[in-house]
Design a protein around this nucleic acid. Structure first.
Lengths: 218, 218, 218, 218
DNA sequence: AATGAATGAGCGTTCATTCAT
DNA sequence: GATGAATGAACGCTCATTCAT
């Protein structure tokens, strides 16, 4: 039996959810999730074993199956719970800003900050979003959409404010921005020596806004 | 005997590689490589089995081990051979152009063209370059460097020509460009319906050069 | 504490059994037993889980271990309690009849009636008595003996009355009868459509008594 | 991959079948089958492990899966191959006899002989045919039908010859006979000391034909 | 007495790799 | 070189049983 299999009666799940939110059981669910993400980050999903995760979470192998339907479900939970939280914070940051450019700057900075703070999440996120048969496809699509929506809003606001060009193809702009940020993160993840990721935020925004070309503002 | 069990100097192995590239054995080597990439693209590396690859290549399971040291080696060969070829063509395209901006346009267009033409390669490339413990790390680094060098050259030329801003942080510009292109490809790979990837080239270059901000050139 | 972990004299345990049979606890003991038989009948012993039984009996998994030593013990209890009851009723039926043939007819009819009425019991009985390593061997042997004794008595009475042949090998006659009845039940259990099992009683008795051969009575 | 999974291309299966019938591979298929039946007979299906079977057959665990789809498939193969053979021999015995009674005698004797000769088969047969969710249902039904057909033929012939009563319900007669034989075998299997099973044949036939009742022929 | 979360031994199955032919 | 049968280590997952509450 398992907290997350949708086939169980709602009452049971709600009760368990309730418990999880208050008591120490809660503890275990998150311990396993964090442990799994750590192990996935280090070894990759397929090379990680349930035993390793259990050991890292300091629970028995079988305990994992009380909280997750199977190995894949851990990943799905990660995307529907952990990263959702993070993306929520992106939105908060954006909403706290006034102009479109400031909003963009906030988004990029938060993105880099959050991923720098939680390297394991960053690794798993990078890896899972670049697979073809993605194990958490619906969750990833939802997140992707959330991010895209934020960018869309920023761009549209900027266009109304007159700070962003009007003739842009919105879909491409979104990929342009998220792609560059992702690559900056990816490079950081694979770098031989550590460096401050957030320091890339302002130069990146500058590139997004002005491009690499010479213009009269220089 | 397995052609990979030897520890002979690289030169000797290169000679064998040369032979392999010409003779009929060659045939099988490439059939396996292509088959593997196809299967990897469809199922992912870990979910692909040697049996599936052998079946797709129409050889016996054991035959694969005459040409490749192990499953992982197929991926390594893919990166050191297949994608190297592709990246070589990027350089040729770039060299055929005059101005920095035209060179950049050529690079982006070729990149999208090649990946559109060989979807399997695109999938495997995307997936493998975004793992932490990358199975073909040295090869990927080499390729990445090759690409980065091309971009560096373009940017430097542009700066001399006066078409690209001088105060840019080159390392970031490279990630900015490759990241956006990668994301455009990744989105295309996961799109529900097919569309022409190369049509993104010009709008992308425009974004790279001018950014999203309003300037006086409009 | 588990009521089965003690090694107290049988008398003490019997007293507890007596209590159990009267008090409300009793309720749970039988609920579990009936639930288990139902689940065993549907899935087979090994494919049944304690969880399924607990759910069916509407108790917690752990509660089962307050009434039964382990999974196997449920089966043992089933044979020593449930089927013992049934076989007792066979005897009563037999005793209420006069002639050997009437006694036989009563036995067969009751047997078919009881098994028809409690299909789950029938299934488990059939299945468990035909295993090699029988989980309730002593209980099954006891029951088998009980049944055999009834048949023996009937046959012996019939031989004295002159209605049953004298030269018969009693051991074989018993198997002959119980085997045929069992098979009639087994066929009924596996039949695609339901039919009345008790209607087989009289024709069966006729076969037992007269055989299939032609004789002068026809 | 597996010789018995029907999903593989027919050509492959036929080729393998051909090999199996001629070469030493053949050897392994039967070694595993016999080993499995032995282990199943000793421990029961669910308590038998693939490892035990492999050890008994002197092959590696994985080898079993080259010949059988899974554990259950071994049982299915047993019923569709092994017991089919046996039942075929029943028919041959029957066909070699003239009168209905002689045919019946042959059937019973062969049945007891074959099961006495291959105790493991007898055990597994008894056990599997008395489960509700029978793992080899179609195969068991087919065999059962085969047996039933033989009995039907005998009875019908006897009725024409005038040696078997005409007013009998054929379906019941078949169960009456097979049930008694099964029970005789089952008792033998569970007996504490071994005895000759075939010696039961003639007395059994006598019971079938004349029943237990007194008649004028005595 | 009753609960059900936690445990961890155990098993079926897969599959990369080897090697006799 | 080419084959594919054979191997056996490895892993995901289940479930009977325990025990703190």
């Amino acid at each position: 039996m398992n907290i997350h299999s949708d086939c169980r009666p709602t009452i049971v799940r709600e009760k368990e959810l309730f418990i999880r939110l208050k008591a120490k059981t809660n503890d275990k669910y998150h311990r396993i999730l964090e442990a799994a993400i750590k192990v996935f980050a280090e070894q990759g999903f397929f090379q990680s074993t349930i035993s390793q995760i259990a050991k890292e979470a300091q629970v028995a192998d079988g305990t994992i199956y009380l909280y997750f339907k199977n190995k894949e479900d851990i990943l799905v939970q990660f995307f529907s719970y952990k990263t959702k939280q993070v993306f929520e914070r992106f939105r908060q940051g954006v909403d706290s800003q006034g102009s479109a450019i400031e909003k963009l700057r906030s988004l990029i900075r938060r993105h880099l900050e959050e991923f720098q703070q939680d390297r394991n999440m960053a690794v798993v996120y990078q890896s899972e979003t670049h697979q073809t048969s993605r194990r958490a496809e619906p969750q990833i699509r939802a997140m992707s959409k959330m991010y895209m929506d934020i960018v869309s809003q920023i761009v549209e606001q900027g266009q109304q404010e007159g700070s962003i060009r009007k003739e842009l193809y919105l879909g491409l702009v979104r990929r342009f921005i998220i792609g560059a940020v992702d690559e900056v993160i990816n490079t950081w993840l694979h770098a031989e020596k550590d460096y401050d990721l957030t320091s890339m935020a302002d130069p990146l925004v500058d590139l997004f806004v002005r491009g690499i070309g010479v213009d009269d503002r220089d």
